[in-house]
Amino acid sequence: MNTVSARYLRRRVVNWVNLSMSVLGTLFGLFWLVWLLWTLVDRGVRWLGPDLFTQSTPPPLAPGGFANAIVGSILITALGVIVGTPIGILAATWLAEFSRRSRLAAVIRFVNDILLSAPSIVIGVFIYGVVVARFGHFSGWAGGLALAIIMLPVVLRTTEDMLKLVPDQMREAAAALGAPRWRVTVMVVYRAALGGIITGVLLGVARISGETAPLLFTALNNQFWSTDMNRPIANLPVMIFQFAMSPYDNWQHLAWAAALLITLAILALSLFARLVIRSRSFVK
């Protein structure tokens, strides 16, 4: 009798200890999130000001902003989205609509999932070898292409998942009315999955707008105002990297301000994307 209750007690204690560890683990994860965000607010807010958005990056120890980096970031991110999104959606369409079970589709899915998590710096090296080395100089085009390669698998994956969620009855109903396959896809399936597809694009934008590594040796950076995609172009992530590592106070301040802005923008985008997927998608 005594041993039974001792064993029972031991099981209860083990249970209690391990579940407490689980709660502690969760708090451990959230602790870093809070600390990171607090650091950004604490070090970033005081340097915010209208100058950031109107002036270009200054030389050391002079006032200035990072308007050129914001514009450059928007340009190369836009290029990444414009190139990556259509290819991703079309490829996902083939996988989800035309060859769900083929071996080739399985291979492509496999490769896409690997590209999805592949080190982004290797993508930078690849674009360096294909574009930068060929043309002999760093350029906004190269940076945008590198981002497109990172964007593509994100869009493909989400879009395919979303297209698969569209019930087959909808496709059959449209086909029964005599609609050709492409009209079924474009006017029925895409429309039904629109919320999910938009989410995929938003998540892709969130992912590429913070990427630094693939831009280091493709877009490089530019201290001056430039919208010429054929030359090195300023962008927020590489600017943050260079300024944060610099010994100059004013550059470091700009880096913290930019870090705060870019993180808030990306977090807002991610949260918004989640809301879209929750409200627009027809699956719970």
Binding site: L33, A244, A255
Partner: peptide
């Protein structure tokens, strides 16, 4: 909240 940790750009982790 935990997934937001993945959304924060890597460079921010570096600076912090």
């Amino acid at each position: 909240a935990v997934e937001l940790l993945a959304a924060i750009p890597s460079i921010i982790y570096g600076m912090w």
